[in-house]
Amino acid sequence: MLKGIYRALTGKAVTERRMEMVANNIANALTAGYKASRPIFKIIDDQRGFQADKTVQQVGSGSIYDLSSYTNFAEAAMVESGNNLDVGIEGDGFFVVVLDGKNMYTRNGQFTLNQEKKLITMDGNPVMGEGGDITIDGSDVKIESDGTIYVDKKYANKIRIVTFDDKTSLRNYGRSLFVNTDKRAEEKIPEQYTLKQGFYEASNVDIIKEMIEMMSALRAYESYTKVDQFFSEMMSKLINLGRM
């Protein structure tokens, strides 16, 4: 059969995935601490065919896209909320959140308290401090730029901020959380960060970029469709040759 038609099909499948990523970014355009996903394309430019005569035969030079995704950890703007349990991280680093006994990482600093006066995320998972769970028992809460928390002018705890040398091992868990998938990657304290109380980090989705990505994906899809149609016509002519 004609190989080109499969190439167009791969292209179409990849473009659909691309579109889905764009849609997810756009849907999270206002999610605090959200980090946009971006597709990566790799070109497999020589496809190894059957080994005929012991020499590697190159079949065609068409390109098949291999898709993977990465998270863009670029920092986003700080939004002032006036809520004294909102914390934004300026610079590198993540808050540590414990979910089912496992450390998760987030940049979404919209926190609240539970009935035990512990600092939790909006999902109810505890936020970690240097000395374990953070308990805020009092009404005057002051969070310093290094994360030290003073409750009623007394030292309470210090918010734990960690980072990774290689953030590619962080996988999106959903609910604004990231999970570390590489056991070799270790948490470390970032060299420079500033916490801002009363602020939270906005989503880093760039709508203009997403719109361009969306248009380009749409047009690419259209082109693949044209290739499909072209091959379809070609085959139709081939088949009709026999009927002369």
Partner: peptide
């Protein structure tokens, strides 16, 4: 594989919070 393929399924409402400013 250095980076996998993750496809998100959109956004949801986590909480509606009263701001007691």
């Amino acid at each position: 594989v250095p980076t996998g393929i993750e496809i998100g399924h959109g956004a949801m409402l986590a909480a509606v919070q009263k701001v007691f400013m």
